[in-house]
Nucleic acid binder design. Structure first.
Lengths: 156, 156
DNA sequence: CAGAGTGTTCAGAAATGTCTGAACGCTCTT
DNA sequence: AAGAGCGTTCAGACATTTCTGAACACTCTG
């Protein structure tokens, strides 16, 4: 068997799995697959190739890419003399991913804190329980924060 | 205004928000709402009351509860002389939640590692990129692991 | 300037996820 | 035994998310 063919099968399998993982994490499956493709390839991949190799319409690629760009996970490259857009993993994709998760836990904590503030004085017991819940999100946030430097690409 | 009414409004608002948070985290909205209700109430809540106060069928409560029990977030209580089941937050609900998230990141890492193992020798560059991806999940896993003791309820 | 190629948008189709109502097995009461 | 009340299951209704195809604006080429 060709080593190229083998790599192709492996890549497709990898992409499929990452799609599932993405959708478990509350993210569109397709965005996970685009991300996986870029991880696997390393080199810049053209917009049109993404659609072709993932067997999906250009419209879908467009919206998937918008999400990934918004989160700072990929970057768009404009090659001079080529009308197509190319894409590549962002420099600090993993740090960006962690920061995004962190923003989520912070937001959750803020929602709880907001409820706590509105509680009447008498509801001491409710307050204590909500504070425990908020502490949980706080601990997770702290953990993610600690992780950021560890996932950040060391400067070369 | 009655302080009880105010609490009721606050509770409903809290429950609604936690439903949204749950669904953002890739978990059924209803499970998040049941969880929120139990956090807010503190005391045991009857199966029937959950359905009534969340305006949802008993079937829905049954499946929501199954999920929460499987994840170790709540516990079921059988009161002698009462045919209804009651529910309460599990002792270490937040630790269980963290462990569940940890299991997810570990699984993701394992999927990547599995692909890495199958890579042919020649594909050094692909290997390096997948390893970076796996390291990311590894760092997050480590961070969550560190968080477990911090979210665990201190023994009284 | 006409034509081909690009990425984006959006209404609607398709797929997926979630909720319900009815049927069921169980236990307790009468 | 019969009946009432409980939690579970599952097919189907419903709602939401995700994908597509067509229309569009833009740019480059001939």
């Amino acid at each position: 068997m060709e080593t190229t063919e083998k790599l192709d099968r492996l890549r497709d399998d990898f992409i499929a799995r990452m799609g599932v993982i993405a959708s478990n994490d509350g993210m569109p499956r397709m965005s996970g697959q685009v991300f996986a493709m870029l991880v696997f390839e390393g080199e810049e991949v053209a917009f049109g190739d993404l659609a072709k190799r993932l067997s999906v319409s250009r419209a879908t690629i467009s919206t998937s890419i918008r999400l990934l760009e918004e989160r700072g996970l990929i970057r768009r490259i404009n090659k001079a003399g080529d009308r197509q857009d190319y894409f590549q993993l962002a420099d600090d994709a993993y740090a960006a991913m962690t920061k995004f998760a962190l923003a989520g836990t912070r937001r959750s904590q803020a929602e709880i804190d907001d409820t706590i503030e509105k509680l009447p004085e008498e509801a001491q017991d409710v307050r204590a329980r909500l504070e425990a819940f908020a502490s949980f999100y706080n601990a997770i946030s702290a953990a993610l924060e600690d992780a950021i430097p560890r996932v950040t690409k060391p400067k070369t």
